[in-house]
Amino acid sequence: MLDSRFVDRHIRILFPLPALLFIAIMMVFPILYTFSLSFTTWNLASGMPPRFVGLNTYIEVLKEPRFWAAMGRTFYFTFLAVGCETILGMIWALILNREFFGKEGIKLLLLLPLVSTPVAIGIAWVLFYEPTIGLANWALKSLGLMPLKWIADQNTVIPSLVLVDIWQWTPMMTLIFLAGLASLSPEPYESARVDGANGWQIFWHITVPMVVPIILTGIVLRSIDAFKTYDIIYTMTNGGPGFASETLNIYAYNLSFNYFRFGHAAVVLFFLFLIVLSFSFLVNRLKDRGHG
């Protein structure tokens, strides 16, 4: 075993070292490998080794309409989902932001969608959306509305998937906002009340500015996760009908494990990674501001 004084002196290197080594082997190296693959054309199924083609694969991917469609869809899904979740989450948090009997119980119930296995949830929603026997259409019909085709129609598939995402993640936003509201200091409120401000003014001029950083961080974190949504889409539609719900993640999966075009998949992953990395910088900036 290492000499304990040596450990003591070099603790700031030795303590994070195993974790960093692990990350290097399991993450950094694979990313670099993928990056190098993006300059090749490699169809695994052809039985031939990767062939270096410079930026050719990039050009091919950028010319591919399916790529751009998937890109647009991914952003559409993310904005729609996170937008609704933010607004709903804020409303829910404002409703629940007081002491009442059973609050902890409600918080527990809010946790349930978050911790449930996405695959199982996705499957349950498939039955829910089933056009003939599903509950969703039965509910629409009994309200006298037109039944929809939900995930079986190219026009409604993304909103239908977004609805599942909203169901699953609005509670997360609510909990974040609730925690944020609870951490606010009471002084500004007291002085505002002394000044005779009404409820709305207090909310708008005091609560909002104080919770904005929390909301922003929550939104960015949620956006990244929404951007990466995979399990739900894969189990519910696998990108269908047609390609109408094929997001970048699903497209990359299809390219690698259905078409075995690893070079092209690597290019798509490169862009995906780039987008997520810029999101990460954003989180880090927001965090820094939080620390300062």
Binding site: I23, A252, S280
Partner: peptide, 24 residues
């Protein structure tokens, strides 16, 4: 206050898992 390490770990948290599947 090893912020670089923190950021590395943050990236690991936010990485799309799919980009690791293939090399793995």
């Amino acid at each position: 206050r090893q912020e670089t390490y923190r950021f590395t770990i943050l990236v690991a948290r936010l990485m799309p898992g799919i980009s690791l599947l293939l090399p793995w």
